[in-house]
Write a protein that binds this DNA or RNA. Sequence first.
RNA 1: GGGCGGUUAGCUCAGUUGGUCAGAGCACCUCGUUUACACCGAGGGGGUCGGGGGUUCGAGCCCCUCACCGCCCACCA
Length: 889
Amino acid sequence: MEERREMAPRYAAAAIEPLIYDRWLASGAFTPSVEPPTGAEPFVIAMPPPNVTGSLHVGHALFVTLEDILTRYHRMRGDDTLWLPGVDHASIAAQFVLDKILAEEGENRASLGRDRYLERMWRFMDETRDVIGLQMRRLGASADWTRNRFTMDPMSARAVRTAFKRLHDAGLVYRGEALVNWCPRCRTTISDLEKVPVEETGTLWTIRYHLARPDGTPDPEQSISVATTRPETILGDVAVAVHPDDDRYRGLVGREAILPFLGRRLPIIADAVVDPKFGTGAVKITPAHDPDDYETGRRHGLAAISVLDEEARINAEGGAFAGLDRYEARARIVDELRAMGDLEDERPHQMVVGHCDRCGTVIEPRLSVGWFVRTQPLAERALASVREGRTRIVPDHFTKVYTHWMENIRDWAIGRQLWWGHRIPAWYCPDGHITVSDIEAGPDACATCGRPAGELTQETDIFDTWFSSGLWPFSTLGWPDDTPDMRRFYPTSVMETGYDIVFFWVARMMMLGLFCTGVEPFHTIYLHGLVRADGGVKMSKTKGNTTDPIEVIEEVGADALRFALTSGTTPGADQRLTLAKLERARNFTNKLWNAARFVLGARPDPLVASDGSPTLAERWIASRLAEATERATKQLDELEMSAYAGSIHEFAWSDYCDWFLEMAKVDLRRPDVTDGERARIWRSSASTLAGLLRLLHPVVPYVTEEIWAGLTEAAPDTTDGQPLLIRAAWPAAGGRDAAADADMAVLMTVIRGVRNLRTESGLPAGAWLPLTVVPADAAAREAIERGLGYLPALARVRPIELRQPGDDAGRPPTVASTAVATAWLGGGEASTEGDTRRASQEAHLQRGIERLQALLAGDFATRAPAELVERERARLAELEAQLRLLVGD
RNA sequence: GGGCGGUUAGCUCAGUUGGUCAGAGCACCUCGUUUACACCGAGGGGGUCGGGGGUUCGAGCCCCUCACCGCCCACCA
């Protein structure tokens, strides 16, 4: 342990934080004890494992902070707490990133081959995994690193195989042909979720198809025109469809048109899918390249002809256009149609085009055979869990989003034609039988015909990354085995993640968790918002407006970043991280530091036994601490992290620093104070500080831990002999002291009134002025009497004359009046400025009085609860009294 | 085309079940070198809570409607 340093006036977060993290790590505090503490409730928080594709951004910092707050809180509560960290292998994203790196090295997937490519990927993973781990630690993540997991580790691989086999056995996965989303650049299938719709202005071309004469040749006189945004796909046309009730085309149904360039005969069919009002009312049918057409083709028994290859070039089916890229082909076809006189129209057209979420390339619907999860049965259970309250979504309004998606869910294409990921554990035998196995080495023989393993070939597709991510809450704990961790830490208490991945991840975890384990994978889904750049725009690397959390930490410290990200937010709502917010948070850590510097520095030496009874300041702050503790506990239990941060900030800054410490100074410096009393007052300061540190530790763990270290030396009895705050107990709320609260309220009112009066009257701020106080009644007088000792220092007044109620003889024009007392300062005449202020104050009072009089004259007085009416009456009386004083009767 | 969220002081945002809720921080104005902190202290100015209706004794908070802003979902060629 480093030597105790002199506390500097500035808190040097960046220098201190790493040392503290090492202390935590060495203490083993992050890892749950081998045996769960007796009687402890389990608390398990789940995090979205970051993609191992690079370093963390400030959005990751947000989830680390929120999860760490809950983890630290529950650990202090004595719960059997686990926060299991890890990373996700992110197949498509990882390959996208690695491909770019390889390109710089003059290599590519093909030049390396599968094995060397994967080798290179593992090296890349090892590097980034370390970076992510270090960043999380720097943020203060008190996660259990002994259980650090990776979605590509053997434990996860086994869970993936098992889950797939069980789904297969249950008939919930199938292999089949379908039109899938294909990214020609990533060269893989992607799910509907990975396809992002982009509004674009394209072109709507109208193309004339000549009708076939009986001999099969095009009729130059007769034609039918179709509208399309994708002329290149006409090469795959197999029919032309019109609406059955469309009189314009009634006579044509059953006849045939001739496909330009290829001469294919296209039956003209009738189908209600056609909107007669759009375009020409006649639609070209291209089953292999359009989802609607695919369905239409199936209904009419039409062939599906693929004309594009995996890189979206025209294939051999395209005749003379073969080999051309889809956009080149489009231009050529349009040109030639125009030359032939068969391009009837060409106009700009607003449309939505699907792009690859990863690389931005326009997605191509592509006919292929692959593996799918039959989602409906799974979704029904996942819906019931939320509907019936076994899993709760916070904030609540996301329940609707979740429900809507689940109710309209479509089968999930889980195969990916990539290399990096879990290979689908299905084997094919030469006779076409499929064997699914959960054994790592694969099946011994074909499950259907018994052909030996040597004759079987494994599926080359890998799983969609989200399939393995979807098993996260239990694949990380040893499932499918019935491990101690499974029994102890499953299901998860709070699943904390961003709302942007509820479908990708949360929904899949719900479905797979329920299927695999039979229970909901988590009790609560807490969704946070996105962190946006200053100005409200989304952060993105291409825009260059990302915030590097480590840079921020080096500037203001991890605590400040954590506090800034936590406070002033609403669950599920986006937030902007501004410099002002970070500075405010940094100032707060500095404030704490200095408060501690004062308390620790004020320790009487020697510190004798305490003597005497607590002062008003001591009793009041104890009462306030009790209230703050109660509130913080409730807020954290209800996952209101922002409100928690705000309320403790308020308690620390206002109650403890601005009021209590200032009053404690008065008590400590009283000339007649005994050593025993001084010791008692100081111990109150220290123990309140200890309580404050405990309450604050979850959100600003470093600075509180550092101060705690000082406290354990200076006042061991306030820290339970616990050298590390991270292991200290969350405080139990003490009792309130109603009498102290009431006295303090009176005193604060008087002090604020006098301070206000000083400024309002234009009296010098630094001057000691005589004060006259006339209490409103005997009770107020007693309260003021009890707090009288604090008045001189806090209001900078002396001497003080405390009169009997009603005795306001010699009252000058400028006074401060409140419900509890009237007071005035001597030693100065009211300035001109004071006069104008008085005028505005008078108007203000007048307005308030009129409003209250109107209120009390109406139905309010008879219909509202009596206590409310009373309260308003009292307010009116007070305002009237103040006005009388102001205008001098 | 549906659905959701937002619109509160100059800025960034809090406002739990309708009744001191009109708030915080920053910014602004005045004052302050009292031995924790100027990354500070004291005081102050500033908002008809997007517009318009309605329910209620009483509405940022509930209902209707309109206007912007943002997001999500969606197969119209």
